[in-house]
Nucleic acid binder design. Structure first.
Lengths: 340, 340
DNA sequence: CATAATTGCGTTAGCACTAACGTAATTGCT
DNA sequence: AGCAATTACGTTAGTGCTAACGCAATTATG
């Protein structure tokens, strides 16, 4: 699903979808069993069932909704003959809600259905259901203790205050080269042997043959990296570009890319190419914007299994060229190139 | 929170609440950062941002909503100047949505905010956020493969078809006595030494002193148990009553209780009491309905740490007595007793 | 090629909920 | 006691979504 790829950014939408799924599933079950009840009624009725007559606000507080919602729902329940509304004798403002005998009968008969729901959830979701419940409870607690909006604002303030710099490789940063690249490699692909070698000993495999490595540093943190490999005299490959997942969208990738291209020019390189994978759409779009042009076929004798995209740096060409070749190979990528 | 106590039964409501929390938190952040965007717009805009111009239904499919929702949202986005609507030249039915330049600018500037959101979620929810994402993904997958409503109906059919019987103890069932009791004991309390002893060797601690044990069997499964302890000549204690959490609501508890009381009468017992805890509201209500009366103080020299409720069986008394004593000790329990 | 079925979209009515307001009752303060 | 503040609730307007319908365009079928 597309939404899952957005991860933390689409929490709300996905949770809503899940919520609706459960509501409609419950209604389907109630209908199927001939129960005269709707899923939305459940929290209120069950609370009254367990706790006896209570006021509107107490119910609202307990089930985490506004008093208005409970008040309106009560109208419906009264109309359905499930709930009785009474003024409280002690406090005239209060409206005391109590189940009718009909409701008590209905709810009593609902025992097996609730039981089936619990068991159905277990059989349908298995351990994942338990995990979801546990995670929800943990998140509800965490959000009460550390409100999300405030936490985000703190991060935002820190982000915009911190300077974003590009710094060259130095031995003390070797582990970051590994960390930043293994993150995305292990997420979408797998670490190939050639990766492991290069990431573990960049001095030998990148610098010594005449290449360069850059890091993006935000404040004190290293959030991205990029390597310019020297394949042969004047021929360079852009590779090992990785930005920490939680720091994407800051422009670090583009800054690294521009720096690497700058270095390629500074060394008076003649040919610059890269290999990538069609999954990495945002990266591909960035390469195009920077002047790389998608080639009709993958590179002959590629070092990587995951490589299904081959691009060559043609600064003068712009993004207009290569359309036909692209269209043949990848409808989706074409659309992107037209758009950008 | 009350809803969490309902576990699987209130999935929908809790997920909705969480969903709304994330939506409003996101809106708060966007407002706080001065971004001209609303949280509900995000899935559509982001999809167009990543995939270029697409049709209404494609967007709807991708973000898991109806075409109507996307169509109406598009109205708003067009009014806000973020999206352009165009008829498709190739297929006149289709309405192609594309981001305006303004939207592209806005979204481009949103990078740091999205980044902050990801980091804020991490700092606010920590590992729980990851756990929630993982659980959601797993549940979405599981629900596609095994629809919930169908699974529940299957369980329901099996439940109503299976006969519920009460059977006396026999050595082969010893482990079930332990299993069924340790489940609720470990959930709300903790296993005390006296529990462990009695549950491990019921023949010595229950049967030999003159007590009895019963099991509730549903179809082939043992789903509940209950013990009648003989304290001294004619004095019995009802104890170790437990029904599997996933099988509650079927009336097994009541059947077990009635059987135990029947056995108490059959043995011409003179005094029957029980000790329990005020947390166990549904159990307490059942005891009252069966003829137990709440006592004003806990029992002198109780064996259990968790015992804060003491009830004596007075079959003639009904549920009307003991109100005053109750009211003094426990406002909540009082309400229940008035109600039932 | 005519007709039926399907597809894609917009519109409307309706639902569940919230925010905001108004009203009545109660509590707090001097 | 008198007045303000608070509390409890109902009502209204509005939001975000779905279901259901209708229309137009496209595709399938005899």
């Amino acid at each position: 699903m597309y939404l899952s790829s957005l991860a933390e950014l689409a929490f709300g939408s996905r949770l809503k979808a899940l919520s609706d799924y459960f509501y409609t599933a419950a209604d389907e079950v109630y209908r199927g069993c001939g129960a005269q009840i709707e899923s939305r009624w459940f929290p209120v009725l069950r609370y009254l069932w367990e706790n006896g007559p209570t006021t509107v606000s107490e119910v609202a507080m307990a089930i985490g909704q506004t008093h208005s919602a409970v008040s309106q729902l009560t109208d419906k329940l009264v109309r359905a003959g499930m709930v009785r509304r009474r003024r409280d004798a002690e406090d005239g403002r209060r409206s005391v809600l109590a189940l009718t005998d009909k409701a008590r009968d209905s709810l009593g008969a609902l025992g097996p259905i609730w039981c089936s729901i619990r068991r159905g959830v277990a059989s349908s979701l298995g351990a994942e259901g338990k995990a979801l419940l546990a995670a929800m409870a943990a998140c509800e607690k965490a959000l009460q203790e550390r409100p999300l909006a405030a936490a985000v604002m703190v991060e935002h303030a820190a982000l915009v205050a911190a300077p974003l710099e590009i710094v060259p490789y130095e031995p003390a940063l070797r582990e970051h080269f590994y960390r930043l690249n293994s993150q995305w490699l292990e997420r979408d692909f797998k670490l190939e042997d050639i990766d492991r070698a290069m990431l573990s000993d960049p001095e030998r495999y990148v610098l010594q043959p005449g290449g360069a490595i850059f890091f993006a540093r935000l404040g004190g943190e290293l959030i991205g990296t990029c390597a310019l490999l020297c394949e042969s005299a004047g021929v360079y490959e852009l590779s090992k570009m990785g930005v920490d997942e939680t720091f994407r969208g800051l422009g670090a990738g583009r800054r690294l890319l521009d720096t690497a291209i700058g270095e390629f020019h500074r060394r008076q390189g003649e040919h610059l190419f890269l290999e990538s994978n069609s999954k990495l759409k945002t990266a591909l779009r960035m390469y195009e914007q920077a002047g790389f042009v998608l080639q009709p076929a993958t590179r002959l004798g590629s070092h990587y299994e995951r490589a299904d995209v081959y691009m060559i740096y043609q600064p003068g060409a712009g993004a207009a060229r290569g359309k036909k070749a692209v269209r043949k190979r990848q409808a989706r990528a074409t659309r992107t190139s037209q758009e950008v």
